Amino acid sequence: MMSTDNILPDLLLQESELQFERFNNQTAWQLGCKLKELAEAKNVLIAIEVYAFNQNLFSYAMHGTQLDNQHWIKRKRQTVLRFGHSSYYVGQYNQAKNRAFEQQAHINAYEYCAHGGAFPLRIKDCGLVGAVTVSGLPEEEDHQMVIDALTGLVKPDFR
């Protein structure tokens, strides 16, 4: 595994490269279905949310997930919407600063968390419109699942 200092530029590159030309309800559906398809192919259990334009456009909880996954999704999503970066980036950034994100005075740990799995949805030349979130796997795997799905839709030749 990379050191925290080495991973931060890679995570920022993902955010820069994995942006949509346009995004709407149909795009949200395609992204959610792609995540479900990837999870089924890997035989893993996850909960999925695609949230944009201040509404939940796709939500799916695979059989075997728990209500707790929905709580994780909300906290991860809120982190992306507040800080404008993937929840994994926020966690790695705070780790590089030798501090616990959730223990900072201005952070309500019931509303925010810095665990991988939520990624900003951006439209090129427009900005942040939402977040796609996965919960159910270790944070690196949640994050990578989202990256794989976005890569397949946005930039098939990106790695």
Rank of each mutant, 00 (worst) to 15 (best):
Y110C: 01
F119T: 11
G117M: 04
N25S: 09
E15K: 03
R82Q: 15
L13W: 07
L31P: 10
Q92H: 07
M2F: 13
P9M: 13
A114V: 03
F158W: 12
A52E: 14
M2H: 09
L45P: 00
Q103S: 08
G84W: 12
W72P: 02
A47P: 06
G116T: 01
K36D: 13
H143W: 04
Q144R: 13
Y112F: 15
P156E: 10
V132Y: 02
F53W: 08
A39C: 06
H71E: 12
L137I: 01
M145T: 09
R159W: 12
I73V: 08
R75S: 05
V90R: 07
D148A: 10
W29V: 02
F158H: 13
N25D: 09
N25I: 07
A52G: 14
S135T: 00
D142C: 04
E21R: 11
A28S: 06
G116K: 04
A105G: 03
L45Q: 12
L81S: 14
L12W: 12
R159H: 15
L128K: 02
Y60E: 13
K36I: 03
M2R: 08
D5Q: 12
E140K: 07
G32H: 13
T79M: 14
S16R: 11
D142F: 04
L45R: 12
Y88I: 06
K124I: 09
V129D: 02
H71Q: 15
S87H: 06
D125C: 11
D157S: 15
G127A: 11
E102F: 01
V134D: 10
T4G: 00
L35S: 06
I123D: 14
G136I: 01
Y60G: 02
Q55V: 15
L67S: 10
V129P: 01
D142Y: 06
L35W: 09
R99Q: 14
L137P: 00
M62Y: 08
D142A: 05
R75P: 00
G32Q: 11
A52V: 14
Y112S: 07
S86C: 11
F83P: 14
T79V: 11
L18V: 07
T79Q: 13
Q92S: 05
G127T: 05
V154H: 09
R22F: 13
Y89K: 05
V90Q: 12
Y112I: 03
G84R: 09
Q92L: 04
Y88R: 03
H143Y: 14
R82M: 14
E49F: 00
